[in-house]
Nucleic acid binder design. Sequence first.
DNA 1: GTTAGCAGTTACCTAAAGGTAAGCACTTAC
DNA 2: GTAAGTGCTTACCTTTAGGTAACTGCTAAC
Lengths: 124, 124
Amino acid sequence: MVKLQTISAEWEACTALSAVQDALYVLNGKWKLPIIVALSSGNKRFNELQKTVKGIAAKVLSHELKEMELNGFVIRRVHNTTPIAVEYELTDYSNTLGNVVDALREWGTMHREKIRSQLKKEVV
Amino acid sequence: MVKLQTISAEWEACTALSAVQDALYVLNGKWKLPIIVALSSGNKRFNELQKTVKGIAAKVLSHELKEMELNGFVIRRVHNTTPIAVEYELTDYSNTLGNVVDALREWGTMHREKIRSQLKKEVV
DNA sequence: GTTAGCAGTTACCTAAAGGTAAGCACTTAC
DNA sequence: GTAAGTGCTTACCTTTAGGTAACTGCTAAC
């Protein structure tokens, strides 16, 4: 016999599952969230962004920024100065990712600690 | 002149960035978080898991489960029944991902709503 | 004795992500 | 006048993730 409780838990898990899959569908890849984090402390220009997000190639950054502009995560602002300056800015929509970013940041910090303490043990 | 505030904000953003990158390094790919969500409502057997996580191929599931076992996210329990039954269980370590999963679930739900309302507008 | 379910594995393939390196059109600084 | 920076783009290549489909060895049910 299956309990009602179990059925309801399964149902909740199932909707949670598709919601998480939906989120991952747009946030896929190595770079989108890091770029959002980099921009969350203020607008940045292309080369600044490339320096901030460690390890990203210009080609990949350019590609990701285009995709993110299309999906409404960033705004590309061209300033009519000489030489031309291009600034990238987060949209309000990106800012709704605050909780996701915070959760990942906390977990990432903890995870790094765990890995570091494991390494220590192995050395000793 | 650069304000101290700005410097400190930049510094925080930078550590946040690496923490997020660390987290994404282990949680990469389409399937790890969905598998964790599927298991979060209770242990599951291989075929149950494959039915729950929509769209995953047996090969991919098998591969992901092995990797997740190595990384300490799941435990593989073999029951000595006939025929043999294999159960997958989350570790305590996976359970520390609760906030990440919750944040993604909430955001995913909101995101789907947004996309749906955009589609409506386009049709009308 | 054949079908179906469990828990996968194997071989093969495609598409996408990502990396390397070069270049372009412009400008400022030395 | 040449080197260096800005904001990219292009061409080319490698790696990896992921998908398809077939198959294995086992058992239970019809």
